[in-house]
């Protein structure tokens, strides 16, 4: 079943096409959701809500860009709203900053993708959002500021802190791996 067939079938409400969309794209969209959600349970909720919204709003897909890219944006939008709606807004005060050691290029190669995902998940909510949007999705700080409702300078500073925190986590992980060897 081609992508255009799936899209057309979903627009007409055909259950087989909707199921095909869910089965085919869920693993990829789950990875997107997982990067924004603090845990697996929340990521599953985000994925489910995103798929419902995708199937309901599929008429809004103009067909000009990548269908996968459009779905990713829906997942990101749902994830940001889900996190924004949480009552507990964790404001993490970093007690002490230290000069970060540079991470050797080999470090990322030594890590499994699951470990990298885990490192990103370990970031505080705000850091994780900005880091994902900027470093992975490729949005600029102005777009990020509009998406999550902060100023552009806040987005920039959050990203810098997120990057430093991630470097710290990766460094620790590298050291741990070295000791394990």
């Amino acid at each position: 079943m081609t992508v255009s067939t799936i899209i057309e079938g979903c627009r007409r409400g055909r259950a087989d096409c909707q199921r095909e969309l869910v089965v085919r794209y869920s693993p990829q969209l789950m990875a997107v959701a997982r990067r924004y959600a603090p845990n697996n349970a929340t990521a599953k909720d985000v994925l489910q809500d995103s798929l419902v919204r995708i199937l309901q709003k599929i008429d809004q897909y103009a067909g000009t860009g990548s269908f996968e890219g459009w779905m990713r944006r829906v997942v990101i939008s749902v994830a940001l709203k889900q996190l924004d709606r949480k009552w507990v807004r964790r404001e993490v005060s970093v007690g002490e900053q230290r000069d970060h050691q540079s991470v050797a290029p080999v470090a990322l190669d030594q890590l499994a993708t699951e470990d990298i995902m885990r490192c990103i998940s370990g970031l505080p909510d705000g850091y994780r959002q900005v880091f994902n949007l900027y470093a992975i999705e490729g949005y600029n700080h102005r777009e990020i500021a509009q998406m999550i409702g902060v100023s552009e300078s806040t987005s920039r500073s959050q990203y810098n802190r997120a990057r430093k925190s991630l470097q710290t986590i990766l460094t620790d992980l590298k050291i741990a791996l070295k000791h394990a060897e």
Binding site: V23, S26, M30, A31, R34, P105, L108, I116, I120, I136
Partner: peptide, 22 residues
């Protein structure tokens, strides 16, 4: 760092119980 991370995880897929999800 950004490029390395993007290459590794942009197209990453995670296993999902698609039947239950559907």
């Amino acid at each position: 760092l950004e490029q390395g991370l993007r290459d590794r995880i942009y197209d990453y897929e995670m296993p999902v119980d698609t039947d239950q999800l559907w």
